[in-house]
Structure formats: C-alpha cells, structure tokens
Simulated assay, not measured.
Amino acid sequence: ANTVQVQVILDRSVPDRTALDIYSRPESGGDWTHHATAVLVSDGAEPGGARPSWPPRDADALDVDDVYEALTAAGLHYGPAFRGLRAAWRRGNELFAEVALPEDRHDEAGRFGIHPALLDAAVHLPAWAGLAEVPEGRNRLPFAWSGVRLHASGATHLRVHVVLGEAGSLSLQATDPSGTPVVSIDTLSARLVSSEQLKPAGRGVGDALFRVDWQPLELGPVNRESWAVLGDHGLAEALRGTGVSVSHYPDLTTLTGAVQAGEPTPDLIVLPITTHTGTEAGSGSQQAAQDPG
C-alpha cells in the first residue's frame, strides 16, 4: 500500500465559522494535492424523529453477498476494513443497511468521531444500488456533503437509513443498534466517475498537475523615450507627472539650436495645435513637427 501524508488546515478568522481544507502528498515528498474544502458552523440542532422498528416493516431484504464483487468490477476496490456491509433492505426509494467494523478494528473506534471505514460503509449500499442506473464500468462517488452532524462518537455498528434523491443524491440517518443517533447527512451529492479515473496515480508518471511556477527574469536598463514639448509649459509639467522624460522649448527654432549646440535629440516632439480666429484662410492652422536632426 502507498503511504501518504495528510494535512488539514483550519481557518477560524470568522467568528462561529471554521473553514477547513484537506491536502495530501506521497510520503516521499512532492506537491500537496487539494482534495476537499468544508465549512464548519455552530449548530445546536438536536436529532429528531421516532426510532423506527428494525428490521424495517414492509421492506424487502436484499442479498449483499456479491455487493463488493460488483463494486470491484466497477472500479471500487475495498480492503477488508472497509467491507462493512452486513445486511440490507429496500422500500421504494428508501434503503436500510446494517454496517459494522471488523472486530480487529473495534479498538480504533474511540480515536475518531466516527471511524472512516464505518462512515464509508454507510454509503456502500446506495453506491451498489446505483450501478443499475449508470453505464458499465462507471459508478457514482460521494462528491459534496451538506448538513453533516455527528451526534455520538465511538460507534462500531450502525443502522443506516438512506432516502434516495435525484441524480444520485441522498440523505442519511444512522443510529447505533440501540437506536441512538450517531450521524446524519442532509444531502450527499454524487459525481459519476469511470474505473479508469480510479486507477492509482503516480506509478512512474510523476505529478501531472499544472501549477503556477514563477520564473525570475533578468532585469536590465529600460530605454526611456525623451519628449520635447514646444510652447505649452503646462503640458510639459503634466507629462512629467506621468513619469515621462520631458524637455520644454519655447518653439522649434529654440529646440533646433539646442540640438545643434550638443543637446540630445528627443525621440518625440509634441507641438500643440492652437485654433485661431480671424480673416486668414481657414478657421484654424496646424503645424507639423519634424526631427530637428
């Protein structure tokens, strides 16, 4: 089995609200892969509803002997600790199941709010039942959980009641064998995946995920254009305020004389256009600027 490192990051910067992100990477090192995001909020809701009779009345018993073989064929390979489905019944769009941890795992139950293998087994029955509704070689996997509440910890056995919704969604209530609520889920949405997508990654192919990689650039001198503004002193000052290298000359003759005297030739000459009124031909005049060099 491949060993991975798991990182859980909590953000409590907002009162009564905790953001949670889950990452993992191979034990040998490498980049962290972001798997899940959750928001934890304060909730004083008490579990409700009457304790149903068990086994459920008017429900048809299901044969679960071949459940894990069918899930394996669809690409879901469960090890011994996760094969917890023991019995099942169906009544319309309702599923009922008994799931349990293997006896050699019972001493681990107290280390968790609910043991991961036990919680996973609680949704194996709907995963198996959903195989009839999806193409061969595909199945639905849990994708988004909403309204998850843990009512008791340390359970080793669960009685699970699932109500199936649309597009593979469901709600779930689970109790211990005495009927005491253990965990409830308002909505669990599934996503369709293929067995090809479930194949183990990282065997000789490396990490193929794209990521941002900042490459340093060599800094060199920047060629700044020099501007010459003719006549309009206010325009020259305004251009200087934008960071442009600006020289001011009263007119083109003054600029030409300065260049001939050894001043650098500007890259750009700005010649303001002024509108004139009078009897001269046309209502205005324009002047063209040329490189004095």
Rank of each mutant, 00 (worst) to 15 (best):
V182P: 04
S42G: 02
S226M: 06
A117R: 03
P126D: 03
G234F: 04
R191K: 09
S146W: 00
V4C: 13
H233S: 15
P102A: 08
A208N: 12
S283A: 15
R159E: 08
S53D: 15
S146L: 08
P266G: 07
P47K: 05
Y78N: 02
F82Q: 10
S226N: 14
T254L: 08
R191D: 10
V163C: 07
G206T: 06
P272W: 10
A109M: 04
A261D: 11
S146R: 07
S169M: 08
D43V: 05
P55M: 02
P250F: 01
L76V: 12
A228F: 05
D251T: 01
A81M: 14
D213F: 06
G231M: 12
S24I: 10
L20M: 14
S247Q: 15
G44E: 13
A127S: 14
L255G: 09
A155H: 01
H106Y: 11
P56L: 03
N223T: 12
T274Q: 09
A258M: 08
P272R: 05
P216T: 00
G44S: 13
R159N: 12
D207W: 02
A127I: 10
G110R: 01
L62N: 02
L118I: 07
G92F: 02
G165A: 09
G165N: 02
W145R: 06
L235F: 13
S184R: 04
S28P: 04
W54I: 04
L255M: 07
R105D: 12
D16R: 15
T180G: 08
A87R: 07
